[in-house]
């Protein structure tokens, strides 16, 4: 079990001939991920990593039956690459690219609203269902199959948490790096909804950080939903250096939201078990899950 991807998921790589696209597609294939083709405009008809390369996502989807796509494209090309995948009806788009203009993401968000596509990222490490399918840049060797769902805004802290889970004997159902950008695709709430209905997931670990309101929204959802599974959370940034500010708009819009204490309190109020120290991911999960 697990969510969004499994061993049957057929995956395209947009930007497969680039250094990163090539490197991580190769690694994904080694892991057992069914990468079925690549998309690079102008390279249609070629082969790369022994896979067919197509000019458009539309063609690639028709020829390969792919339902997921991972993007390793430069920031200036990311918006159009995502739009192309959305328009082609790809169900799951995973955008690894860091540094996409925020206005581009606002446009993508508006387009996603009326589509059947889910977007993970951008600026994220990807998604893995251990033992089945790895999409992105995560160090697959640290993950083990199991029953904890993990959702994280950060990449490296995510790996740290997973390593601790494994040391305590907890494998993972699916791990999703939703990315640290201001305007992401899937949010904590979107992932929590899917984990709620997944029989392979017994508990969810949520790794948030200072800024934005994604953790507060998750807390609100969990409280309203009387969520049926234990949720464990860590919020990084209690001692983050202060933001530089200029003028008043950021403070007016924040109106006290976004700080770690606010997030932690909201999560506690929603019966979430809060990890106090980043060395206690494993220990705290052990206490929450019997």
């Amino acid at each position: 079990m697990g969510i969004l991807i499994d061993s049957r998921t057929r995956v395209l790589c947009q930007g497969i001939t680039g250094y990163r696209g090539s490197f991580f597609s190769h690694r994904a294939i080694e892991y057992g991920t069914r990468i079925v083709g690549g998309v690079v405009p102008g390279r249609g008809g070629q082969k790369h990593l022994n896979l067919p390369v197509f000019d458009t996502v539309e063609q690639a989807r028709e020829m390969t039956g792919a339902t997921a796509s991972v993007l390793f494209v430069p920031p200036h090309a990311a918006r159009d690459a995502m739009l192309e995948a959305i328009d082609a009806g790809i169900e799951l788009v995973v955008c690894i690219t860091e540094g996409i203009p925020i206005l581009d993401m606002l446009r993508i968000k508006e387009r996603l609203a009326g589509s059947q596509t889910r977007l993970i990222g951008p600026n994220c490490p990807g998604i893995i269902t251990p033992g089945q399918c790895n999409i992105g840049i995560m160090p697959a060797s640290i993950y083990q199959p199991g029953k904890i769902g993990v959702i994280s805004r950060s990449g490296t802290l995510f790996y740290e948490a997973v390593a601790q889970l494994c040391r305590e004997g907890f494998g993972q159902s699916t791990c999703i790096g939703i990315g640290a950008d201001v305007v992401p695709g899937m949010t904590f709430v979107d992932c929590l909804e899917l984990f709620r209905d997944d029989h392979g997931t017994e508990a969810v670990l949520l790794i948030g950080e200072i800024g934005g309101a994604a953790e507060e929204e998750a807390a609100q959802y969990l409280a309203a939903e009387a969520y049926p599974k234990p949720v464990i959370a860590y919020i990084a940034g209690r001692h983050a250096p202060p933001y530089r500010r200029m003028g008043h708009s950021s403070a007016i819009i924040a109106a006290g939201k976004g700080g770690t204490e606010n997030k932690i309190q909201a999560l506690r109020d929603a019966n979430v078990i809060v990890v106090e120290s980043p060395v206690e991911f494993g220990m705290t999960t052990r206490k929450a899950v019997r």
Partner: peptide
């Protein structure tokens, strides 16, 4: 530290043990 999330968590961890980071 590699990555912003781990960097923030590392600062938090130092502070928990009453040490002070010289930088982020």
């Amino acid at each position: 530290v590699g990555g912003a999330g781990l960097a923030l968590a590392t600062m938090d961890l130092l502070k928990l043990h009453e040490m002070e980071p010289a930088n982020f």
